[in-house]
Design a protein around this nucleic acid. Sequence first.
DNA 1: AACATAAATGACAGCGCTGTCATTTAAAAT
DNA 2: ATTTTAAATGACAGCGCTGTCATTTATGTT
Lengths: 338, 338
Amino acid sequence: MKKITMQDVAEQAGVSPKTVSRVINNEPRVSESTRKKIQQIIDELDFQPNKSAQSLAADRSLLIGLLYDNPSSAYITNLQAGVLDTCYQFGYGLVIHPCQNDTPDLLPKLRNLLASSRMDGLVLTPPMTENQELLDFLESTDTPYVLISPLDDARTCPIVSLDDVSATKQSIQHLIDFGHRRIGFILGTRQRSGSEMRFLGYKQALEENNVSFDESLVVQGDFTFDSGVVAAQQLLRHETPPSAIFASNDYMAAGVMKAAAQLRIPIPYELSLCGFDDTPLAMYMTPTLTTVRHPVEQLAREAGELLIRQLKKYLQPFKPEELQSKLIIRDSTGPVNK
Amino acid sequence: MKKITMQDVAEQAGVSPKTVSRVINNEPRVSESTRKKIQQIIDELDFQPNKSAQSLAADRSLLIGLLYDNPSSAYITNLQAGVLDTCYQFGYGLVIHPCQNDTPDLLPKLRNLLASSRMDGLVLTPPMTENQELLDFLESTDTPYVLISPLDDARTCPIVSLDDVSATKQSIQHLIDFGHRRIGFILGTRQRSGSEMRFLGYKQALEENNVSFDESLVVQGDFTFDSGVVAAQQLLRHETPPSAIFASNDYMAAGVMKAAAQLRIPIPYELSLCGFDDTPLAMYMTPTLTTVRHPVEQLAREAGELLIRQLKKYLQPFKPEELQSKLIIRDSTGPVNK
DNA sequence: AACATAAATGACAGCGCTGTCATTTAAAAT
DNA sequence: ATTTTAAATGACAGCGCTGTCATTTATGTT
């Protein structure tokens, strides 16, 4: 069973290989009739263009890279699934590249990866999206890229975003609706725009509901479980402790749950708790966690499409659709206990 | 800044391109002196062979595929990290392919993937490792593959394994050492060799310690959280309930924890609990979960190496090293409460 | 020293596509 | 009908490697 080449298709169709190539690449300047005829033969023969030959001849790898620093593995697999989906659709391959944003050899490694895999473009996720040095490097090497990042109007490069501000507002509103007025807030790592956005959402929600902002109810975390434990201890030992806590991600929320268990504060009866991100974890905790779910896969799909449409000639550019995060109400939140 | 080709290296070194090619591919029949000289020039020029050209000329893609069905995302990312590591080392690329083992279009999809990406070989993980139809297909298309799978002496194909039997024995021994005699066991999905192995380990540990085997302490689960809840409820309502429970994975253990919380049975005081797999979850539960940690990344690294060494000429075949799972003792297990 | 043998190297074609540019064919304009 | 202009198609080289096989050089043998 020998391989079918473009030559074979061309012969069958009675045209030159170049015309077949045109059909495959969606080039214009092919008459509708020939296009249809050739397409039919391609289908019939189940012809798949040889990627290596395409890459070599056209000097593009048909590969895009996905860079991420391990936030959570569930997030990563969703991300991958989304980008893969797009890749598959457009005949691209995906090179995944886990990295550590804060190590000095990230750039050399990436440079090396780019040189050896010749990726046509990159999809970046936080925190790499905030790594200016990295972005500058990509600019300097003319590597196309798109960012997946919290909404931030300051950015001008290709980007797909989620609105963390309004997602957080929703959560806080949910707590306020339950009668909570003293709502603790655990910040994520500063310098991450996501953290700032969430904090902003918190403040806005309070303001809109005429709940006074109390600085002492805001404590710093760093997105880790342990920091959640510490932050919760601090909040819960407050002289007038909050009746609800919003943690800037689920891991910290899990930490809060641990701290609450240690202090024998039953959730949701004496303390309501909101997480952020809807990690699988959220379903497995006792009680299950009220949190915010992001359409990560869909977002990644859009990022991929944005990138690939930028890369391929003869394709319309892509206008990503606004995607919404969603509050998932579970058992960790309830009416305030007067 | 133009690209450096083999031609450039050859000229610099005063040899033919073919000789440079020989050096790059580790072929024999190159004198040590020329090899060294060429290697030096390669380093100097930072020459990276063009993968597309290599693939096209040699008719191999320099790509290997990783097939998995979503067991847990943490597992997947570890897996990927390991295989990537090997790929990187040998200049291979990795094509990830999440699949759903139980859907009928798995094979067509895979066939398509193979045709379009021309992967040189595959790494398979459970449950695909047990999908005979899939394996037959690979055999029939002469696609090299290796399995990552629980130890099972019946298999003859290339495989890297972990010994689930002895890992489980260790856990049960741990419980027995704490004085537990009535130990509940929650089975995983039948037909998964891992489940059988774990059950075997359980029975062996009991026997070795002269603890009688009580069939009523064994209940069926299916690796999901919910099945763990149900199984635990059944066990804990037993007329003489177990003082300890071993769940065949962490998700089910989490379910047990939930059931225990509902029944107000404090862990570990009135019930000890062992999980399996050391999902990140295990650290985040309250109490933290005693479980078994597998060297997944290392295992994946070995699988990759086993595969690649099989693919590349001029390489020694690889004899994987035996890897050991390890019991991680945390807060969910304790002395039996008499 | 002359030959046989093995090791090291090179010449050359070609892998399967696509870019460039020339050529043919159809449509529009006169 | 004839010329002008645009659309459709084709010829051909070459992307950067590697496989094959011929050739050169070193090594060993008598």
